[in-house]
Nucleic acid binder design. Sequence first.
DNA 1: GGTTAAGTGGACCGTCGGTCAAGTTCGACC
DNA 2: GGTCGAACTTGACCGACGGTCCACTTAACC
Lengths: 196, 196
Amino acid sequence: MTERRERVDAARNRAAILRATEELLRDDTADRVPIEAIAARAGVGKGTVFHRFGNRAGLLRALIDQRVDELRTRVEDGPPPLGPGAPPRERLAAFLAATVELAVRNIAVITAYEQAAPDRHAQPAYQFWHEHVRGLIAAARPDLDAELVAHILLGSLHADLVTHLIRRGESDRLVATLRQVTDALLPDDGGAPGGS
Amino acid sequence: MTERRERVDAARNRAAILRATEELLRDDTADRVPIEAIAARAGVGKGTVFHRFGNRAGLLRALIDQRVDELRTRVEDGPPPLGPGAPPRERLAAFLAATVELAVRNIAVITAYEQAAPDRHAQPAYQFWHEHVRGLIAAARPDLDAELVAHILLGSLHADLVTHLIRRGESDRLVATLRQVTDALLPDDGGAPGGS
DNA sequence: GGTTAAGTGGACCGTCGGTCAAGTTCGACC
DNA sequence: GGTCGAACTTGACCGACGGTCCACTTAACC
């Protein structure tokens, strides 16, 4: 089990493809960016894209996972209130603010991804977010159905709402309103501040 | 401006197409039902479907509007707590319960529609729902950003969450949890019980 | 430098949404 | 019942696109 490293040309192409995808999604008014256009922009053949990422959804997922993993480490190991140590109410507010910001910054990728892979509940990235939110709610309000409340809160990150707000330049309102909602939901003192 | 009536053959075909769409979406394990299959099932040519409904989204919208209009009349003219007369908190809970039920009963159509027309904020049906919820929240809690809270609550009707719950036979939990959330959000007494 | 698994490319295929022009049918009016 | 025009119907056709396949190239390890 020697676990060969990725060849350098492959790595170079992978990076070029991801970069091209991002650029095309950003630049274009882009209702739809065909894989072939991405391949052309990256200077590779279409086959290479599919060989590397399997399908359209896999390509977009790779792009998203980059960003999500970065947030994940900040949540697991970073300083409070996003990282461990702050009371649940504060951690939740910080996390939702961070995810909204993530969604706003990557709205084009997220929109394309939702189209390509509509079942967000099956995605590891979503499952991580959900489990985190669920845990925080459960810690502060054991009487709530934390699992579903978490789904409802995360529902506000759907591309349609975020797009709508961005178009009107009001994405900050979403952060503020989520804060209003979570404040109404969770008690002031919060649960045990020690946990992970 | 004589406003010619629809020809009887056209009306018959319209009905047949809508029925066929519904059946195929229900029957099939149907990840994707091509228009051509719908036309075949309805016993008409593909061109007829497009002539009548414009495009895929238009067809699905026609199907959904049937259901939504029915709910709308119950909301505008029906008995409380869904219709006018009940306090906002009760009306809101009743409305959300009704929309969840609507979504559950029509999940296949809704899923297909979200795929075909991702921008729900542009849809008249959604705008009606949103305005209703927004108004109820604003009546009971003028200090909240009712517009956005309404979007967040309605976000829980996205096909992905509803599908997820149906698969686990737990769609009732969504109604109960939305009630938990709205109870936390709106005061017990509710606003002026008189208004529309 | 030889070997080989990994990587590459782009012609090709199947599917599908949507168009269109030629033919058919309804129904209004005589 | 006959005529006529508008509405309706149809399915061949087109273009776009996701995904496959395999002959060919190349990096990497000895």
